[in-house]
Nucleic acid binder design. Structure first.
Lengths: 347, 347
DNA sequence: TTGTACGCGTTATCAT
DNA sequence: ATGATAACGCGTACAA
């Protein structure tokens, strides 16, 4: 089977069809510049020849626009695909991107300039999901192309966020009953450690605007209001939000003495790990242990018992981000609402 | 804040640095063409100016190569992100793509030529995941660029598959006990209907090589060997593999009379829907109802009871596909092994 | 309505 | 080791 070494280009097909390159180009890009009849004839015949439209590189070089949108993920692509929250966000983004006939390029902020900077020149706009790891944000920001930040606030670009502190506080206030509650917190990545570990008193003094810290502050405020003590060593740091790793923290937390009767979890993945672990240990939820999560991933409503959590509308957040990027005049909630979803784990 | 209307280009920075464009280009692309010292000086100074590397459109126009790899999904991007199996596959693909410093563009085969064909000209290679919906495969195939097909076999390109029939048969043989078993099958998309529905006798006569049909054939063969009857109306078609839709089929199946005591499910999403439904109805698994799934998604080992299923190594499949694409000499299993994972739902 | 010609930013070849 | 220049495929202003 003879395989064409080189795809056809516009010049060649125009010659084959006996018209000028401008006419073929217009047939694809500016329908009003030629008769319907001719246009359809050209579209049909080029397709038969195996030419399906302008080459993206050349077109975008010429137009200064590619119709490609990039999502720059804080984590690796591989991890993001495994994370239900990131997956939901991408779901929302790709919805809107498809509606607008754009294409989706996935980048990662952790990747070094030398490996990715070329690719960064192609997209017409960028959605940064989560606080960027390397210096990708600075690089891209200097191109002057539109950027939407999500779940962090760079200060110099439109950002879509939730009120992490308030949402966490709301969840904790709902889960806590009174001063004899014994509470454990299982946090998202908060320390510079790749091992599950308890916090120490001095860990609590740092002031960060990372999500985990904001949520922790919300939990603390709730505890204060409910007159509940929460020592540093009842707060667990987890380096990554996976079922395997968070299960380690879950086990440590609910087997510590005195045994907690409330676990505040900064993600549903963590909370579900707690539920599984409690079940294995024969601890009844919610009778002996109340659990709240964060995110409201699909699995949260299907677990047994169903999980009380904070809905942060990840899909809608993705849609908002894409809309804001594609239409600067779009009405976009810069601070999206969260909602406490009361289910069985806190009844 | 003054925003550059136009990013710097190679020609401009070379002028600013007082060297030729070739030298700057070589600094980025061919380290051996200039002294280490000069190269580093150029890299440093261009970065300070805000130039981080060659423009992708121009570079790929010139080189005929973009370092972008496309995954062409059979479904919409949005759906694929919600599907655990597709997510695992993408995880594997992106692993290998990152290792090789390539970029990932996500396309969908259902999208019409006019909306996507331009983007299709950019990637250096394509991974088709699942039997393509529209004519994207034909279009791309004609470009002569490398293609890897996954979970279908186009005949004219390397394909990575599993033995769906054998795997399904193996699962069914394990779940079935003998001739007094009453079995229900819940199938993936098999009919041209967007509603959950039972099959009729004539539906069974069609001969397709779609995955659902291959697996169904495997189930049938197993039933025959075990002398188990399986009427057409005990086979359910589900249009999409989501928890919501499959739950409808699950309910219909396990409440039908006579009540089945074995349900063969063509996906874990379906099987998990069966488990939830059985639990709601107070039907004990595996005592009163044995269930097998297909895929071995992460949730399968965390459900209660844990799910017996066929592991099809989706992540590894993704890795294989990407490896096969990036290195034509790579040793790649064209027919990947599956493994029956015996867990609690069939004990 | 159609054709011609230039330039988009880069890389490779060929000189120097 | 470095500089000049043609060519990659296309879009559009302009001329016809």
């Amino acid at each position: 089977m003879p395989r064409r070494k080189k795809p056809l280009n516009l010049k060649e097909v125009s010659k084959l069809l006996g018209v000028s390159t401008a006419t073929v180009s217009n047939a694809f890009n500016r329908p009003d510049q030629l008769s319907k009849k001719l246009r359809e004839k050209i579209l049909k015949e080029t397709a038969e020849l195996g030419y399906f439209g302008p080459n993206l590189a050349a077109r975008s070089l010429r137009r200064g626009q590619s119709d490609v949108i990039a999502v720059v993920l804080a984590d690796t692509l591989s991890y993001s695909f495994s994370d239900p929250v990131a997956s939901q966000f991408l779901q929302g983004v790709s919805d809107v991107i498809a509606e607008n006939k754009k294409q989706l390029l996935l980048l990662s902020s952790g990747i070094s300039s030398t490996e990715q900077s070329s690719a960064e020149s192609l997209p017409d706009g960028f959605i940064f999901y989560g606080a960027p790891k390397g210096d990708a944000y600075q690089r891209i920001q200097r191109t002057g192309k539109p950027i939407i930040a999500v779940d962090f606030d760079p200060g110099n670009a439109p950002a879509i966020n939730i009120d992490n502190k308030e949402a966490a506080k709301k969840a904790a206030l709902h889960a806590l009953r009174g001063s004899d509650d014994r509470v454990a917190v299982i946090s998202l990545n908060l320390l510079d450690s790749d091992r599950v570990s308890r916090l120490t008193a001095e860990d609590l003094e740092i002031e960060l605007s990372v999500i985990a810290h904001l949520r922790l502050t919300g939990y603390m405020e709730a505890c204060k209001e409910k007159s509940v003590e929460i020592p540093a060593n009842m707060i667990w740091h987890t380096p990554v939000n996976t079922p395997e790793v968070t299960e380690i923290a879950a086990y440590e937390a609910i087997t510590s003495h005195p045994r907690p009767n409330v676990v505040l979890c900064m993600s549903d993945v963590i909370a579900l790990a707690v539920l599984r672990t409690a079940n294995k240990l024969g601890i009844n939820v919610p009778e002996d242990l109340r659990v709240v999560g964060f995110d409201d991933i699909p699995e949260a409503s299907r677990s047994k018992p169903t999980l009380t959590t904070v809905c942060q509308q990840s899909i809608e957040k993705g849609r908002m981000a894409a809309k804001a990027l594609l239409d600067p005049d779009a009405k976009v909630e810069k601070l999206m609402q969260t909602q406490l979803i009361e289910r069985e784990t806190t009844q």
